[in-house]
Every structure is written in structure tokens, then in C-alpha cells.
């Protein structure tokens, strides 16, 4: 549907990738680990290797969860755009097809210390 307006109505997005000085937004979250109240917002260059995203900010951010010590990144299941997906750890975000404002989710079946079973 269009916006009811008295003349042609065109909105300018405030979060276009050009506004981030060469970086992009990536959202990442650990399914069923709700100690972290919302998905993390990360702002990174698209050339960042996927491995660095995981070993750097993501690993640091999840430390507060008691499951973090048992987290094995080589066996987690990934989702992108809510669909199963397999990353290439050595390729960059861009080469992995991770676009601006994409949401990555990861699952660790059986690791759910703080979460009641669904």
C-alpha cells in the first residue's frame, strides 16, 4: 500500500549502507540464549573474514552465557534470512553473501543452560 498523501510521497531511508563510512551492519544472535536480550548489532567492513567476525566480536559478546565455554563454532548450525545456511569461514562477509543489515542466527542443539525447553 502507498502512503496517503496530498502529493507524491517518497521516503529516504536513514540506514542505507552509504551512511556507514564503508562499513555495514550485521545482526547476529544465538537462538534460545535469551540472556542476551536482543540480537547483537555489529558494524564491520564487508571485507572482514567471517572467521574474524566469529573469533572477534561474537565470541567476546557471548562470554556472559554459561554455555559459552562449551560452544564449538565448527558444529553450530547457521541461519541467514531465517533459512539454513553454511558460511565459509575463510571468505569475507561480502563473499559469503552477507549483505547490509542481514540477520545471522546460530543454533547449538542441546546447549541450553538458562533456557527452559520449548
Amino acid at each position: 500500500m502507498t502512503v496517503a498523501a496530498i502529493r507524491e510521497y517518497i521516503g529516504v531511508p536513514r540506514d542505507s549502507v552509504e551512511n556507514f563510512g564503508g562499513k555495514q551492519i550485521v545482526y547476529a544472535s544465538w537462538d534460545r540464549h535469551l540472556l542476551f536480550a536482543a540480537p547483537f548489532l555489529l558494524c564491520l567492513p564487508p571485507e572482514t573474514p567471517f572467521r574474524d567476525l566469529v573469533a572477534g566480536p561474537l565470541t567476546a559478546l557471548v562470554q556472559a552465557d554459561p554455555d559459552a565455554v562449551a560452544l564449538d563454532w565448527t558444529t553450530v548450525e547457521w541461519l541467514k534470512d531465517n533459512q539454513p545456511w553454511a558460511p565459509d569461514f575463510d571468505a569475507s562477509l561480502a563473499a559469503n553473501g552477507i549483505g547490509h543489515k542481514d540477520q545471522l542466527r546460530f543454533r547449538t542443539a542441546g546447549l541450553n543452560s538458562l533456557s527452559a525447553a520449548a
Partner: peptide, 23 residues
């Protein structure tokens, strides 16, 4: 979805933090 042209303009505080002038 009813009025996307309106809401694409939203000034969202978190993404804004990574833009000018805060970067």
C-alpha cells in the same frame, strides 16, 4: 508493510550511533 515509504525514514538510535557524528 502497509506504508513502507513512511517507515524506511525511521531514525533508529542504534544504527545512527555508527553514522555521523558519532561513528
Amino acid at each position: 508493510d502497509n506504508e513502507p515509504e513512511k517507515y524506511v525514514q525511521a531514525w533508529l538510535p542504534m544504527p545512527q550511533l555508527f553514522q555521523e557524528p558519532i561513528n
